[in-house]
């Protein structure tokens, strides 16, 4: 039962971080905030596999971690190209 409250605190902190996505003055602020929200939901996925006792959710979390990294690199490269030309 303690595990459910710990999951709720992580979801609360993800909602608090979403304030920076809306208000951030420049574009790199928004990228950093979206990166943090992605890692927080990866932790939620790992804790779900112990709360529901289904062990295959760890595989979903492993693939989700790859997508966060590719996401940030593509956004940074697109910005660098659009500023130049």
């Amino acid at each position: 039962m303690l595990l459910l409250y710990l999951i709720l605190i992580i979801v609360l902190s993800a909602i608090l971080t979403f304030y920076r996505v809306i208000k951030g003055p420049s574009i790199p602020d928004r990228i950093v905030a979206m990166n943090s929200i992605g890692v927080m939901f990866l932790l939620v996925l790992v804790l779900f596999s112990y709360y529901f006792e289904r062990k295959f959710i760890i595989d979903v979390a492993l693939v989700f971690g790859v997508f966060i990294f590719i996401d940030v690199l593509i956004m940074a490269k697109y910005l660098k190209k659009s500023e130049k030309g």
């Binding site: 605190i9 992580i10 902190s13 608090l16 304030y19 905030a33 943090s36 927080m40 932790l43």
Partner: peptide, 12 residues
């Protein structure tokens, strides 16, 4: 979870 909560406070 304390460190994760402090990240959200520091972002604001």
């Amino acid at each position: 979870i304390f460190f994760v909560l402090s990240t959200a406070v520091a972002m604001i």
